[in-house]
Design a protein around this nucleic acid. Sequence first.
DNA 1: TTGTAGGCGTTATCAC
DNA 2: GTGATAACGCCTACAA
Lengths: 372, 372
Amino acid sequence: MAELAAAQSVNNMALERPIDRQGVARPSVRSERRVTSYDVAMLAGVSQSAVSRCFKPGASVSKSTYARVMKAAAGLDYIPNAAARSLITRRSNMVAVVISQLANLYYPEALAELSQQIARRGKRVLLFTMQHESDVEAILADIWQYQVDGAIVAAALTDAQVEEFERRRLPLVVFNRNLRGQSVNSVLCDQYEAGRLLASKLAAAGHRRFGIIAGPADSPVATERRNGACERLQELGLPPPVIVTGQFDYASGVLGVRQIVAQGGVPDAIICGNDVMAIGCLDCARQELGIDVPGRLSVAGFDAVEPSNWLSYNLTTLRQPIHNMALAAADLLTSLIESHGGTAEKRTFAPQFITGATARLVPATAADPLAA
Amino acid sequence: MAELAAAQSVNNMALERPIDRQGVARPSVRSERRVTSYDVAMLAGVSQSAVSRCFKPGASVSKSTYARVMKAAAGLDYIPNAAARSLITRRSNMVAVVISQLANLYYPEALAELSQQIARRGKRVLLFTMQHESDVEAILADIWQYQVDGAIVAAALTDAQVEEFERRRLPLVVFNRNLRGQSVNSVLCDQYEAGRLLASKLAAAGHRRFGIIAGPADSPVATERRNGACERLQELGLPPPVIVTGQFDYASGVLGVRQIVAQGGVPDAIICGNDVMAIGCLDCARQELGIDVPGRLSVAGFDAVEPSNWLSYNLTTLRQPIHNMALAAADLLTSLIESHGGTAEKRTFAPQFITGATARLVPATAADPLAA
DNA sequence: TTGTAGGCGTTATCAC
DNA sequence: GTGATAACGCCTACAA
């Protein structure tokens, strides 16, 4: 009886709705209406709010209502409109991911991991890529517009930019960038320490004359790696290395080793700002310059990207635990979104040394069994 | 005079609004209000519509109003809410990009290009990645929800799935997948032809005994390349190749060549489903099996990803014109979005043969100057 | 459990 | 050029 009454009132609504929504006064521009929860409600003989509840996980709906609604929804191909939902819930379930230089081999790996972790948490990735880190400003404007729930940024941000995230109360996790002195949530690998570690290992093996093929000057990661290595070499009282700058690409590695050799002869070891440059350096040294690596020259890189592990290279390098870093970034961001803030946290991961076979890592005499 | 009256009526509104929007009946859950166009209007002393118009490119606003509004907006850090906008305009300015296996080296390059082209057209990328192409179904549900303006999908779609795009009038461009018999807008490289071309080139050089390290069975691209090669070999009356299957990764190339050699001895040539497998095959053949490439064995791949061009490899391969394909995909999608459909179009790009140095491409006698 | 009603923040329409 | 007003499609107290 009550059910009948309900159905009837619903039917009244159903009859009236078309007039409400597309009656005489209906704007002529609206070419085609979308299927909305009202349509579903009409077909199912329930109220619109009932439909809404059916699509909300923990809502209280009777079995029969649920079934009727779902059947109607399926019949109409109804899917809730995320824009409308986010308007009222203030949750878009979108996360902005800002990443530079997808050409860099390291970044695709990071992006793949991040994307997966974010999806696993029921959120979508709004992707922003940039050619140069300086493009970030324009991207931020987009981010504010799109009502994302948070952002993971793999680019250097200025103090003002970080502050704007705070002002807008938008959870932010900085990925792989150490914003010194800023209280920002960040997930990173200690690049400075990585640089020091590599220098230490090579110096311990007796290398004295170093070359460095550094990454671009506007890359904080490149700068930290270079500084870490340089300062460690200095601490150890070794002569200052020959430093050239590259663009993180293969050609830069090739060019770099040529320049270094031209400038001061073949050094004992070359530290490259990333693996791809190290591979370029290695290929050029061996195949063009005819230098024995690691016999005469040691070459090392950073990142442990996939090709560094290929048989032709087996590069001595430092791995960033990308998987764990992506996991941490997603976790951190999620908790920030849920809890609406908290104190800034820096999760630093230690780089992992990969021995490889492109660097001599023991003193020369011990390394060569023939000399023993 | 008129201006004063306007300002006054605005002020009335301004005074009333707070009551409307967060008065007694205001829900207690709403923790913090956002800055809206009403706030800007209030501060600037204009109506909310005026503010809205100021943020719409081609709208008619007086200089002075515009200036006042912009100043107020800047002061309040106001940015229009894209969700609200898309609700009424039915335009989100978001494009879904669905892509599989970011680990595949080819895909990051494609994604980078796509992302750039889409951004250049004033749209954002909503990224969906998947481990297996079969995950696409779940992703589609997300796509419907998020009101994207269109989608670029680099995955195989079933007829039903394509049909659903049509039913929802959602512009779709299929990237790098040939959905035979379906009338879908697509941008692709002729993989079948690429397979044939490679087989022809190798056969022309006198290779007779072939091995194939194919890509995974669920990958249409892999299947087409393999079929193209196989059918061409058959046409030419050559013996059936030894075929093994891999996963498009380096290890599969290594394993593949071992299997092929174990099964039927060293063949004349091995065609690999993509470059990374070809590189694995190459490394293993040369360094583990001690086979002279290209002297004794020719190796070729597909895609011309960056590492294929490195000195250590200089792979014989087929390039897909990724840049142009991304351009075409973005153009096609954009025009579909603007024009609301049209007839299905297939833009097919020809693969470009990269000679490289891992395959002997002239008959053996002519190739060897000593034999002449 | 269910329906009613109000609001999320914007754009579009239409008088003025 | 400008301001009221009605959507857009949904969520959510609140009352029943």
